[in-house]
Write a protein that binds this DNA or RNA. Structure first.
Length: 878
RNA sequence: GGGCAAUUAGCUCAGUUGGCCAGAGCGCGGCGUUCACAUCGCCGAGGUCGCAGGUUCGAGCCCUGCAUUGCCCACCA
């Protein structure tokens, strides 16, 4: 087949993907007896489009899974999408606002219907984009976090945790987002620095400071450190009357070690309802708590004349009032403090006390390795004891530190999109309440005095369901409909779960280590008694070309993979994303990298073009090595294949790709293909090409498969995607070494003739049989007039080889080369001296490993021989 | 406040357990195009591996300190 001159990816990629899908090569086979390899794809949020970040993880995981298939494993890469409760909910609410309505007006059912419609459309787009990236996932097992079977798993885990007392419902201080009107977890908050005014007010006999005067209406406790001498005369429980915003209040003195005597005046008033630290102080001393700000961010009636005002509006007015009362002592306008913001929706978080559902991380209720442990302890244990390995290892510290600071996890959300909390309540006329938690709604038994069961209106944190992802996706969906089966039955009877769990590796970004990875470990160990995965590979973020974050506020900084792919090809994008990139480290987007990799695809393409034209008329055959070059390329191929194989297995993708890149470009294209033009070995060329295509396939699946399909005797049934890692024929090391010498001679010849402008030179040599055999080759590669064997003669001797070779360059021209020789001589002398002095060092001889010493001796011997040659040449010039 | 990382060629970055004269891509200088590829070939220049100590026969790599940059966590009213 005639291939066009350059590789045009857009012409082949979609057909190639369709070919793979048709062949079924991506489908896992739990019934097989092969070794397993499984990855759960981190489900992208169904918000519409894939980013470069998605492109990166799809590439990394695709490399792993394609390579696992090449190793003959039964590989499962399970794809899916996430309902992304908060993100999608916020998006739909924004749409409604723009249409001049809101969710309360249209109602829960209509809202959910509309959201379902939106995500169904997004999902289609996104799945298409995953295919465009070449992702070889098992589409027959596509999952969605809101699937019925997954919902069953969510309810099972909720129930199991509830029964174990790990999930409880209680009044706790939570992070409230007044914009989205929901709680968010600690991890979903980001802090931004803000400059504010720091006010100091007179409060009875004390001075107190605050940046938030609007929370101070209900303050009736002053707190100070028990050992603060300045306030020693005040005792815990002392009361006094202070003039305050809306008149006098009676305040009580409290002593607590949470107060930092060095900060401000060392005295503060507390607002337990709207501050976590204050809440904890209030709990310790059994103090009253009062709500000041409502859930819409407006002041409550306690604020008197300010009631109903949003806090931003009220703040200056309150300050003004206190000033007029003469209570304002100081204003510091340069106060820098952190403001907590919801990562989604950017609402300013207002701590509130609220009745919510929590996961208790400190209750010893988990049966792990025969002991009752807390969720925290299990989280620590599995990483500490090596059940789970993090790559890179340094994230283990980050992980442990996070666990140390971990508080109970608030899992209920006041949004509509998501898994509904599986709890029902009913109320008695006497005011008592009954709670029911279960997989299915309770039946109304019409008991006297009780009203009907009502389901909790809240939904669960998205991460509660994605925490189950590695195994909830492996539950057989049919079995999950059968409620006579327990969760354990489901696990035992689901073939996929039995075959693929725990998954081999979890590959994801370090930025969701806490959100997701840690929570998968938490929930999965609890629910199944197994870890979710054995290895966690964490990749870094992709930043803009200037090293800053890609951000919506700078639209020009965002690169859309779908803009890159048509122009440069998916393969180029994939390789650009892994080239020179190490785990856990961020990378900057670079157009030069993508060009380099597009060029690499073209290089592969043209190697194939050449080989196909050179082997058109020959029989396929096995490909026996004949020439020195043949042996050399086989040796290099073997070494490269081994290294790539090992590096991929050990998650060193950049290294693996580097090896491939240099083998293809430096060894195969620059030397072997050129050599084969003199002494063609078509069968071997063909087999080398096939091996290379297999080795390159995990990195560049499209171009390699496109080429593969053009090879003689290939049919659509034989895709490259299903080929096993190549077996390389044995090569003779001695002959390979001969070709290395040829390379050395050619390189030096090129250097000399280039720097002297001496074209058409002739190379002579004496008594070297393998050089005679490679004479034509040297002549061509060195662009020489001739290469000839003679007994002796004059000219410019080569110094990089111990064989006697010289170029027929006359003394006058060669004289210009004297400086080069001199430099070379000095370098070589330095090298010999270094090696010699190392060997004369007695402690080196006695302490360094023998093989290292031997190596040094050999090096010295070689260096000495070369030095002799150079100095001989140098003397001739003198 | 606590922690993690980075600092290597003009730029962006590799360098796996310490073992020869430190690597890549891009960029730069020179030469080159019938014969797979100008998305190309050939030749070359360019680095006291942030600074200062230490351990070692031997340090870009290990230890200590310092400097600069980035990030994470916590958060004091």
């Amino acid at each position: 087949m005639n291939l066009p001159k350059t590789y045009e990816p857009a012409e082949y990629e979609s057909d190639i993907y369709a070919l793979w899908e048709k062949s079924g090569v991506f489908t896992a086979h739990p019934e097989s007896h092969k070794e397993r390899f499984s990855i759960s794809m981190p489900p992208p949020n169904e918000t519409g489009t894939l980013s470069l970040g998605h492109a990166l993880f799809l590439t990394l995981q695709d490399i792993m899974v394609r390579h696992a298939r090449q190793q003959g494993k039964d590989a499962l890469w399970l794809p899916g999408t996430d309902h992304a409760a908060l993100a999608v909910n916020a998006l739909i609410e924004k749409q409604l606002t723009e249409e001049g309505t809101d969710k309360h007006q249209i109602g829960r059912e209509a809202f959910l219907a509309r959201t379902r419609e939106f995500v169904a459309a997004s999902r289609g787009t996104m799945l298409g984009q995953m295919r465009a990236m070449g992702a070889s996932c098992d589409w027959t097992r596509l999952r969605y976090t809101l699937d019925d079977a997954l919902n069953r798993c969510v309810n099972e885990v909720f129930l199991k945790m509830y029964e174990a007392g790990v999930i409880y419902r209680g009044h706790r201080i939570v992070n409230w987002d007044p914009n989205l009107e929901t709680t968010v977890s600690d991890d979903e908050m980001i802090y931004t620095e803000e400059k504010a005014t720091f006010y100091t007010f007179k409060y009875g006999p004390f001075e107190i400071s605050t940046a938030r005067p609007e929370t101070k209406f209900g303050d009736k406790y002053v707190v100070m450190h028990p050992h603060d001498k300045r306030y020693a005369k005040y005792k815990e429980g002392d009361t006094f009357v202070a003039e305050w915003i809306n008149g006098p209040v009676t305040a009580t003195v409290i002593k607590d070690e949470a107060v930092d005597p060095k900060f401000g005046t060392g005295v503060m008033t507390i607002t337990p309802w709207h501050d976590r630290t204050d809440f904890e102080i209030a709990e310790r001393h059994s103090l009253d708590k009062e709500q000041i700000i409502d859930f819409h961010g407006k002041l409550l009636p306690i604020a008197g004349e300010f009631a109903g005002m949003p806090i931003t509006e009220a703040r200056p007015k309150i300050v003004e009032k206190l000033r007029q009362k003469g209570l304002l002592i100081k204003e510091d306008p340069g106060y820098i403090h952190n403001v907590a913001i919801n990562e989604r929706g950017k609402g300013v978080i207002e701590p509130q006390i609220k009745l919510q559902w929590f996961v208790d991380v400190n209750k010893p209720a988990v049966d792990w390795n025969g002991k009752q442990r807390t969720l925290k302890e299990v989280l620590q244990s599995v990483v500490r004891e090596g059940d789970i390995t993090l790559i890179p290892k340094r994230f283990e510290k980050v992980y442990f530190h996070w666990i140390d600071n971990l508080r109970d996890w608030c899992i209920s959300r006041q949004i509509w999109w998501g898994h509904r909390v599986p709890a029902w309540y009913r109320f008695h006329v006497d005011g008592t309440t009954e709670t029911y938690v279960g997989l299915t709604p309770p039946i109304n038994d019409g008991r006297e005095g009780w009203n009907e069961w009502e389901q909790d209106p809240d939904t669960l944190d998205t991460w509660f369901s994605s925490a189950l992802w590695t195994w909830s996706t492996l539950i057989d969906p049919e079995l999950a409909n059968d409620y006579s089966l327990t969760l354990n039955d489901l696990l035992k009877q689901s073939p996929d779960y039995q075959a693929y769990h725990p998954t081999t590796v979890m590959e994801t970004g370090w930025d969701i280590l806490f959100f997701w990875v840690a929570r998968m470990i938490l929930s999965t160990t609890f629910a199944t008694g197994e870890v979710p995965f054995k290895t966690v590979y964490l990749h870094g973020l992709i930043r803009a070309e200037d090293g800053k974050k890609m951000s919506k506020s700078r639209p020009e900084s965002i690169i859309d993979p779908l803009d890159v792919i048509p122009k440069y090809g998916t393969d180029a994008l994939r390789m650009a994303l892994i080239m020179g990139v190490t785990p856990g480290n961020d990378q900057n987007w670079g157009w030069s990298k993508i060009e380099a990799n597009r060029n690499f695809c073209n290089k592969l393409w043209n190697i194939a073009r050449y080989i196909e034209s050179a082997t058109a008329d020959s029989d396929a055959g096995k490909g026996e090595p004949k020439t020195d070059a043949d042996h050399w390329i086989l040796l290099k191929l073997q070494q490269s294949a081994d290294k790539i194989d090992q590096d991929i297995t050990n998650f060193r993708f950049s290294e693996a790709y580097g090896t491939l890149y240099h083998f293809v470009w430096d060894d195969l294209a620059d030397w072997y293909v050129e050599a084969s033009k003199i002494a063609p070995n078509p069968a071997l060329l063909n087999s080398v090409l096939q091996s290379v295509l297999i080795m390159a396939h995990p990195f560049a699946p499209f171009v390699t498969e496109t080429i593969w399909q053009t090879l003689d005797g290939k049919t659509e049934e034989s895709t490259l995607a299903q080929q096993l890692w190549p077996e390389i024929p044995k090569a003779d090391a001695k002959q390979a070494e001969h070709f290395e010498t040829v390379k050395t001679i050619v390189s030096e010849t090129r250097f000399i003739t280039k720097s002297l402008g001496a074209s058409d030179a002739t190379l002579y040599f004496t008594d070297v049989p393998f050089l005679s055999q490679n004479a034509e080759l040297i002549k061509r590669l060195g662009q020489l007039h001739d290469v000839a064997e003679v007994q002796n003669g004059n000219g410019l001797y080569l110094t990089s080889t111990s064989y006697r070779c010289w170029l027929d360059i006359d003394q006058a021209t060669a004289r210009e080369f004297a400086l080069q020789i001199e430099i070379k001589l000095k370098t070589q002398q330095a090298l010999v001296e270094r090696l010699a002095s190392r060997l004369s060092n007695k402690s080196y001889i006695s302490k360094a490993p023998k093989e290292v010493v031997e190596q040094t001796k050999d090096q010295l011997k070689d260096a000495q021989i070369q030095l002799d040659a150079i100095s001989k040449e140098y003397d001739r010039f003198k």
